[in-house]
């Protein structure tokens, strides 16, 4: 019980101190809007093209929303030593890191809702398979957050976390089949696509929103889950190695 009091208070503190601040709320709203608008104008087609870009926009919104926050909630707190206060509290490291990432996962899910809600006013989403989309959004948010965590605990400075994040994020825009089919990528790059978590998330969302997923759902879910576990375990290992050395 005591551990869960600590857990919920860490999540609530991060939500209040970081995620619910006006700059982050506006980022969460404007970023998906800008992507939707940009791709809609670029395709030059009718409203039906919204459906084809929606899975990609949802993925990008989650990825950028979650990974950018970990640099603040983890790297910045480590830099100003506030994180030490958490490390000396009697909370298991696993639970502590889940609490530190819980807010980012929720923020990622909220970011995903923005383009989906907007799209619901413009196109018919009755074909959307909630049984696939809801767990997919949760898993994409978790995998992206843990990717952000992995980066945040591997560096010492906030700017390093931001730079390192971009090193992963921008290639993922092109390599994960968000807006360009993986089949159209050069053969040399395709194996790289399947080494990135968003490839499986985007495939799930495409299947759940418009149909036509390239891989079986079970494989997509299993791959995302494996990325989540691997990234989280690697992050814990890094915290123990670097911060409790």
């Amino acid at each position: 019980m005591k551990r869960w009091i600590a857990f919920w208070n860490i999540v609530a503190k991060d939500m209040r101190a970081y995620y619910l601040k006006p700059p982050n709320i506006s980022w969460g709203l404007i970023f998906p809007l800008a992507w939707t608008g940009m791709l809609f104008i670029r395709t030059g087609s009718g409203l039906e093209s919204i459906l084809s870009v929606l899975p990609g926009v949802v993925c990008v919104s989650i990825l950028f929303g979650t990974t950018s926050m970990l640099a603040v909630t983890v790297t910045f707190e480590k830099k100003n030593r506030a994180f030490e206060r958490l490390l000396v509290a009697p909370v298991p490291l696993e639970l502590l890191m889940l609490a530190k990432t819980g807010g980012a996962i929720a923020f990622g899910v909220a970011n995903a809702l923005v383009p989906i809600i907007l799209a619901s006013f413009l196109v018919d989403l009755s074909q959307l398979d909630a049984g696939v989309v809801v767990p997919a959004v949760l898993l994409i948010a978790t995998a992206s957050t843990f990717l952000g965590l992995f980066i945040a605990v591997a560096v010492s400075e906030v700017f390093e976390a931001q730079t390192f994040s971009n090193f992963f994020r921008f290639p993922m825009l092109f390599l994960c089949g968000l807006f360009f089919p993986i089949a159209k990528l050069p053969a040399l790059l395709r194996p790289l696509s399947y080494a990135l978590p968003l490839t499986y998330g985007a495939d799930l969302l495409r299947g759940g929103i418009v149909g036509g997923n390239a891989l079986p759902y079970a494989l997509d879910f299993a791959a995302l889950l494996a990325f989540c576990l691997t990234l989280f375990a690697a992050s814990l290992w890094n915290v123990r190695r670097r911060w409790i050395a």
Partner: peptide, 14 residues
Amino acid sequence: FDNLSFCAALYGLP
């Protein structure tokens, strides 16, 4: 106040 309250929560105080 919030800082103290948060630190108390880390030790599981209701």
